[in-house]
Design a protein around this nucleic acid. Sequence first.
DNA 1: ACAAAAGTGTTTCCTATACACCCATGC
DNA 2: GCATGGGTGTATAGGAAACACTTTTGT
Lengths: 184, 184
Amino acid sequence: MGGFMKKDETLDEAAIRVLHNLTGIRNIYMEQLYAFSNTERDPVERTISVPYYALINIQEHNEELNEEHSAQWFSLKDFPRLIFDHNEMVGRAIRRLRYRASIMPIGFELLPEKFTMRQLRKLYEAIMDQSLDKRNFINKVNSLDILMKLEEKETEGSKKGSYLYRFDKDKYDSKIVEGFQFKI
Amino acid sequence: MGGFMKKDETLDEAAIRVLHNLTGIRNIYMEQLYAFSNTERDPVERTISVPYYALINIQEHNEELNEEHSAQWFSLKDFPRLIFDHNEMVGRAIRRLRYRASIMPIGFELLPEKFTMRQLRKLYEAIMDQSLDKRNFINKVNSLDILMKLEEKETEGSKKGSYLYRFDKDKYDSKIVEGFQFKI
DNA sequence: ACAAAAGTGTTTCCTATACACCCATGC
DNA sequence: GCATGGGTGTATAGGAAACACTTTTGT
């Protein structure tokens, strides 16, 4: 998905506008990737593209995307060939996301406000494209001490029901001030 | 330092050309940083800047820079206020360099072909802005097994003289093929 | 003689990893 | 009763960090 920037807006603003026009989505995590400037990259006219990647919560936005904007989801394991250098952009986005998710609590953007440990683990397994040991993952996350364990249980995905957690942004922010380094 | 890109060149090519025009330097490590696009960043006209950072070997290029191009070196600990958002660009370059140098053998770009362990350590101390234990650093570097220890000794910096090393690019490349991950 | 840098190993601690069984519930 | 996912702790290995003294030689 792309568009042209206007004279009176920044690249960030243009990216936000374009995403909104094409998907109806606003106020989500977006990050500039890299300026692509090969002279031959667009056969029609000379174009420099500055792609952004966004983290879209599939649970929150699925209907909106599919029904109102005819957008589709593709698995990273099996996505189509894109025009121009857009496959390279996707590759760059994946690498950036992996790096960011390993040093910032960026993954939480992709989960509902309340989530289970399993959801969090499955998300990181998807981002990193590797399976993670259940116990080690929980130990690691707990040792970070930036989640609130809620009283509630979620019973959709399992018979027993599993505790819900919430990312404690205040706690995280105050830890950051004290020099805490997120690392997963 | 900056310049405007031409219609028939890429950003990489423009960055290389501008650096060469201003310093006479060619064929060095350069990397694109980030596209800066605030609408007010340049008060004269709307400008989007895509800065690059370069690794310039101070030993090799000092005279060239100072005498032929009136360029100057500034310490990162005490550098002047720059115009527009250029201080932000420098900050971004430092962070990027720290990251790159920790996962790629990029630091060697800044050393002469033959260098002492002390020089390598001092370089990493400068990049990371922290002191590094002499023995631990040597053990770590040796465990990477990507340097050739030469017979020659360097006697300029010390009475005793210290062994010179050379980065073994062939060995490094073949290790990379085998899945080796540089980490320092 | 002494100043300045080179060179050299071991111990300790901490983090990462590997690993298996019982629990609660819906069907 | 059985299938499904939830929940829990420990032992081991490997890497990171701390640490001090002797050697060489120019002055």
